[in-house]
Design a protein around this nucleic acid. Sequence first.
RNA 1: GCCCGCAUCGUCUAAUGGUUAGGACACUAGGUUUUCAUCCUGACAAUCGGGGUUCGAUUCCCCGUGCGGGUGCCA
Length: 496
Amino acid sequence: MITIRTRFAPSPTGNLHIGGARSALFAYLWAKKNHGQFILRVEDTDRAREKVGALENQMEGLKWLGINWDEGPKKGGEYGPYVQSERFDIYQKYAAQLLAEDKVYRCFCTPERLAQMRQKQQENKQAPRYDRVCRHLSDDEIEKKIQTNTPYVLRLKVPEQGTVEVYDAIRGAITFNCQDIDDQVLVKSDGFPTYHLANVVDDHLMKITHVIRGEEWLPSTPKHVLLYQALGFSAPQFVHLSIFLAKAGGKMSKRHGETSLLAFRDKGYLSEAIVNFIALLGWNPKTEQEYFTKEELIEQFEISKLNTANPVFETEKLDWMNQHYLKKLSSGEMFTKMKEMISLNSDVALYKLFAEWFSGLSVKHQESIWHNLKERSKTLEEVAVNTMNYVNKEIVYQPQELIWKKSDQKTTIKILENLIEKIKEFAKEDFLVANLEPQILAWIKTTEWGNGDVLWPMRFALSGEKKSPSPFELAEILGPAETINRLTKAKESLNA
RNA sequence: GCCCGCAUCGUCUAAUGGUUAGGACACUAGGUUUUCAUCCUGACAAUCGGGGUUCGAUUCCCCGUGCGGGUGCCA
C-alpha cells in the first residue's frame, strides 16, 4: 500500500490568503485521513517578487489553524531541502537531461521581442503564443549564439499535433489540444527554474501522491502532464479546488474586504471557527451537520465530496459560527486568548485595555461577566468593545431620554434616589448579576413602580444609550462605585 | 480574441429520471423582555434560458447566456 502524501506549496510573495489556507487544509485533511504525510514546500523561484516576512506569515497562519506539516523548511525530512532555492542543482540536472534528450530547446528571444510578438498577435485577434522561431534554429546558429554569450531560456517542446488528457479527481477527464499549449519556459535566462519545472520535479522527488491546489492551475496542468512524460515520471492525482469569490464579483482581493488569514485572527475570530467555516466552503459531507472539529473533518473528509463550483466568501455565517465557538470558552480560556491577541496583534490598544481591566476583577466577577457577555459578542474584538465602550464612557445626560415613555420627571428623580440607596446595600463582592437582578426586581415589587419605570432610567444612566445591555450587566461591569456615580449624575441632570 | 472550468433560495449547501426540491446563515413576523442581544415559534425565498432524449428532467445530451480562471523568463 502506498503512503498518501500531499503538500502545500506557497510562494513567499505575500501573506497567507484565506483561500490558500483552505487549500492547505484540504491537502492536510486528506493526508491525515489516510495516515499519510503533509508537506510544506516553499516555492521561491521568483526572487523579484519575494517579500520579507511572507514565509513567516504563511507558517504562522498554518500553525494557528492547527495545520501541522510533517516535513518542511527548518523541520526537515527525508526528501529535503524543502525550499526550492536550495534545490537548484537538482533542477539543473533534470534540465540538462531534457536538453540532452532533445525534449527542450534553447530560446534566445529577448523579452522585448516576445512582448512585440504578443502585441501583434493580440491586434490580429490571435491567441498570444510563442511563435517557436528558436525551436527551428540550426545547430550552427545555436552554437554561434552560445559563443557570443547570448542569454537564453529553455522551453519545452510541446507536440505540434494531438491532444493531452488531464485527469482531475473531481472533474474527470479534460482534454486539451496541443495547438493551444505554449512552449513553456522551464529554465529562465538566469538559470532559475520556473514554477512548472520545479513543481513537477519536486512533486515527483517528494513522492507526492495528490496534488491538491486551486483551480487557477488547471490550465497549466496539461503542460505539467507533458513534463512528467518528458521526464519519465508518473503523474500524481490532480485535484483542482474551487476558488473563493468576492461578493462584489471576481476573485477575492483586498479591494473587497479582508483576505489575509491572520487579519481574521486579529479581528477576534477563533481558529476553530475558521477551520470549520472554510472546510464547508466547497466541501460537504452530504449530511446536515454544521459543526465539525478538526478530528471530525479528518475522519469525514473525502475528495469525491468536493464541489466544483466557486463559492462566494461572506462572513455572516462565519460570525455566527465564531460565536458558537466563543460560547464554548470558559472565562479563563477567553482571557488567555485575549492576552495572546496582545502579543500577536499589530493593533493591540483595545485588547490591552480589556486585559488590564479584566485582570483587576475577581474570578467570580470575571466568570459572571463572561457568562453574559458571550451572548452578545461574535468576536473577541466585540468582547472588548462591548465592555470597554461602557467602562470608559463619559456620558452627557439628556434628561428626556432618562425618563421611561410611561413615566415622568418627578417620579424618575424619586426612583433614582431610592435606587441609589438600594444599590448601596450591595457589598462589592456581591455586585453580580446573579444577586443584583433578583434582589432589585424583588425590591421593585415592594414599591409602587413597575419594572420599566425603574429599569429604563437605570439602564440609561449607566449606558447613556437607548439600546444597551441590561442594567444589571452594566452595573456588574462598572462596579458599585461607578454605578452609584452615574446614577447620581443622572439624577442631578434631572434636578437641574 | 483564444483555451479551460462552473451554474439549486440573497449566501453556504442537500436531494432525485417521478419529492410539498431539504438544512444552515442572513432577512422577516410573533412570543419573552425596560431597550438591544440571546432564546422559542412561524413566514418568505431557488433548480439561468432554449432545444432535444424520455411516459416524465431540476437531474442525462446539445446550444446559448452568465460567472470564474488561464493566456508571463509570476506563482
